[in-house]
Design a protein around this nucleic acid. Structure first.
Length: 577
DNA sequence: GCCGTTTTCGGCCCGACTGTTTTCAGTCG
């Protein structure tokens, strides 16, 4: 992944914020935000592009292209440096506080010289905000509350936490009298890797019973706002949940709207405007007559805009509108396409269920094949030995004869050492049906060393899948640094699949890496990395991540029939060294 | 600042809720 793209994204975002704070043209600020998004999602490394190619990126025009070129050449942009000089970084930080936006931040700075969260808290304590226009007692209270929230949680939670909460709330609200439909929407429906707040949508003629039931859920610690159409609460875990209730006839338009993303919605509404239509959560309307055109289903709304229905994980304004217009949306891989799981553990190493228990649970999921891949000996704490592994293999062979309809594959999860070597000599590795290889140590090597390490692992004829490539643990451990384009090329060249690890705190590789890797022709394995029976079901999050990376079933080796999978596992493109 | 099957100028998504407004601005999504 080209890191310079991310640097430019951050720079453009910062400038957009500074423009908003200084009260400049709001549309200009939006143009920079849009360009920041476009640059972040762009598949080419900005450093390799000339001015003309930069300008070809949608949302990047002559002026922004010039600023990007200036940054690439000089490491900074003059007008952005000037803006930074006018507005202290702390003022921008103020806008991180919920309920405090750019306008109030600027007023605080101009009138009271406040340029940090600490100064703001002090000023409120000294009641210095009282004379400020637009700042009443309630505003001060909200700011202090917002600062608390900011300091305590940092906001986002892992997808499984949000999903379980959403499913519980939907189940409860669905039983309320008059509730015709209820489901989760928002970033959760799009399977974003972390969730800032949970959006629940319900359809009812009378919203009052639903709003009341929602406010009275026992997991509510605070009602943030409550009206006829929308109520926001905070849960015991500090997570915000929004409930929107719409008339049943508006369901499709509302679901489309509340699923987002915001960037995707802006695009669909622009398309509506061009067709002399207006799209809101209540429906698609004729601008001239004000008449409702469609609103009942998402399919109706998209169809009337001249688009096929777009799966939620694609709705990020990352080219899905253009693909839809061309009729080239991918037929996304789904959970039902998976014929097996290729990375799982048992209690022989750090799993908590026995081989037999894991197999029974896997068979119950309807898998046609299933790989057991316990840890290899170089992960010393797992105390693996040749004898244990061979004994497990014997047992797997016996059980394989007993299972009907599910083929058992005996594998292992190897450790890629700092030089790119793995546990065990080639003769021993040859006895496995497949090998996953992962980085479990030396996370802070140089970029060049890490790249070489991963490429060497790909070139090993016995390594079939690179497990959780970057090693990140969301919120805990940063990803390793490598030239991933180089790694993806090696994967494609050697027939090494890239894992989409489904653990909610890993989701590794992530959606953006998938998009990049797919361009090189890389194949993927969506794996649970299950350490317990319960973990097997987490594969839904890996599937969601794969969908965000535009993968089709053909891109994913564990959707293939066993014979095709086995052919792939022989790595025909790599000769034994 | 960007963009064009209405446009090279004049638009730029749309609505809910809160707090401080006495008719609306700011924030959020």
């Amino acid at each position: 992944m080209p890191r310079v793209n991310e640097e430019v994204e951050a720079l453009l975002r910062e400038y957009a914020d500074l423009l908003a704070i200084t009260g400049g043209d709001a549309f200009k600020a939006r143009a920079y935000e849009k360009a920041a998004r476009a640059v972040a999602g762009h598949h080419q490394d900005l450093a390799t592009l000339d001015l003309k190619q930069l300008q070809a990126i949608p949302g990047v025009g002559r002026s922004i292209a010039g600023k990007i070129a200036e940054y690439l050449e000089h490491g900074q942009v003059a007008v952005i440096e000037q803006a930074r000089a006018r507005i202290p970084a702390g003022v921008r930080a103020l806008t991180e506080i919920p309920t405090l936006g750019p306008k109030k931040a600027m007023l605080l700075y101009e009138e009271l010289g406040i340029s940090s969260i600490e100064q703001l808290v002090d000023a409120i304590g000294q009641e210095r905000l009282n004379d400020l226009k637009g700042f009443g007692p309630k505003t001060a209270e909200n700011i202090l509350h917002g600062v608390d929230l900011l300091r305590s949680s940092g906001g986002r939670v892992l997808i499984d936490v949000a999903m379980e909460l959403a499913e519980e709330i939907v189940a409860r609200l669905s039983t309320v009298d008059g509730c015709e439909r209820c489901t989760h929407a928002g970033s959760l429906r799009r399977f974003r890797e972390t969730i800032g707040d949970v959006d629940i949508l319900a359809a009812a003629t009378d919203s009052a019973p639903l709003m009341a039931a929602f406010r009275e859920l026992d997991l509510v610690t605070e009602v943030i706002a409550s009206g006829e159409k929308k109520t926001s609460i905070r849960t015991t875990r500090g997570l915000q949940v929004d409930l929107r209730v719409v008339p049943p006839d508006s369901w499709g338009a509302a679901l489309q709207y509340f699923t987002g993303s915001q960037a995707h919605n802006i695009r669909t509404r622009e398309i509506a405007v061009h067709a002399k239509l207006k799209l809101s959560e209540y429906g698609l309307f004729d601008v001239e007559t004000g008449d409702l055109v469609v609103s009942r289903t998402e399919e109706d709304v998209y169809e009337r805009l001249g688009l096929p229905w777009i799966p939620p994980p694609l709705r990020e304004d990352r080219g899905e509108i253009e693909a839809a217009l061309r009729g080239e949306l991918p037929d996304l891989v789904g959970e039902k396409d998976l014929r097996g799981d290729l990375h799982t553990h048992t209690d022989l190493t750090d799993g908590i269920a026995s081989l037999e228990e894991m197999l029974e649970a896997a068979a119950a999921r309807g898998y046609r094949y299933y790989a057991i891949t316990d840890h290899a000996p170089n992960l010393v704490m797992q105390r693996m030995t040749d004898e244990k592994m061979l004994a497990q293999r014997e047992r797997v062979r016996e059980l394989d004869r007993a299972y009907r309809g599910m083929r058992l594959l005996h594998g292992t999860e190897l450790n890629i050492d700092p030089d790119g070597d793995v546990d065990w000599p080639a003769e021993f590795l040859a006895g496995f049906n497949l090998c996953v290889a992962s980085v479990h140590s030396a996370f802070t090597q140089s970029r060049a060393d890490t790249t070489r390490r991963l490429v060497r692992a790909c070139e090993n004829p016995h390594v079939n899948i690179l497990g959780h490539l970057t090693g990140r643990q969301i919120g805990h451990r940063a990803p390793i640094d490598a030239d991933f384009d180089e790694v993806f090329r090696a994967c494609a060249r050697t027939g090494t699949a890239l894992e989409v690890n489904s653990f909610p705190d890993r989701l590794d590789v992530r959606d953006e890496h998938i998009l990049h890797a797919k361009r090189y022709g890389v194949k993927f394995a969506i794996d649970s990395d299950a350490h317990s029976i319960r973990d097997l079901a987490q594969i839904r999050y890996g599937v969601g991540t794969a969908q965000r990376g535009w993968l089709t079933a053909d891109d994913v080796i564990n959707t293939w029939p066993l014979t095709r999978l086995q052919k792939f596992l022989r790595k025909p493109n790599v000769r034994d060294a």
